[in-house]
Amino acid sequence: MALFRTAEIIKASKLPPEGVKLSRMIDAVYFLPIAYLGVFATFHMHFDLLAGDWDFWVDWKDRQFWVTVTPIVEVMYPGAIMYYFWTFYRQPFGATLSITGLLVGKWITIVFAWYWWANFPANFVMPATMVSSALILDCTLLLTRSWMLTAIFGVWAFAMVFYPTQYAIFGYSKQPMVVDGQLLSLADYMGFTYVRTGTPEYIRIIEVGSLRTFGGHTVWISAFFSAFVSMLVFTIWWQIGHFVGQAFFWVKGRRGVMSRMNDVMIVGTDDFARRHGTPDGVAPKLSAAGTFAEGKS
């Protein structure tokens, strides 16, 4: 017994063997050079503009703003990309693709810009990783097959596991130390000791506000707040994906009337030709029944 349903799926696609081979070439060309590089380049820029400094520096990773801002910004692209891959292909890797793409961009920046060019040690500019959150989001969509349930449960978990995931990477930097009689965390000291001429200390947006009134559980209050905002943001970006990801044709019928065809998969089929005619000089062999049933998109 085969592991996958691949044979059944290929059979159902009614593509000839050369069509199947061509589709795999399209997969390769479209996925890696176009989809993946496009996502990592644009998402990286998008993220750096909205939440860059919290991710650049170890001494910006506080209990409030870092925990709040990062999931909200990182759930945006996954929302739109997940819509696209799920709606058109039922592929549940939109979030993981977005987040790993973002990390590829970040690590290129860390190695070439921060480490080789600006001479900062890699631990000082280590980024956060939300691959764990992305995996939860993608798995939730695959298992629930509902974007609404994904927004409620998946996105909530997406934001809530952010801090525990990062703690394994950045926990060391919260160790206390005393310098010149002042208590500092190691992260504070690293921010102080590595001179940043153009980024003076007051640029840091950290630990400001009254969240400490919640018994000192600042991280979890921030995470809850972030989770709720992330749900809203995910929903908005899912709809942005819907808006941007619409596919339709304007076709001219037999009597010259232009009409909008939302079902892009039917274009070029015999059924389409029977209903809408064909371009001049093209005479399709019309079968008694359409090749395709009425499609849905």
Binding site: I9, D27, Y89, Q91, D263
Partner: peptide, 23 residues
């Protein structure tokens, strides 16, 4: 993350699935 994406990359990804989904 790459393993998760790879799990779906080893099978037809786009065109074939889109045609099947339309049915």
């Amino acid at each position: 993350g790459f393993a998760w994406i790879g799990w779906f990359m080893i099978r037809p990804m786009f065109l074939i699935r889109a045609r099947v989904l339309a049915q």
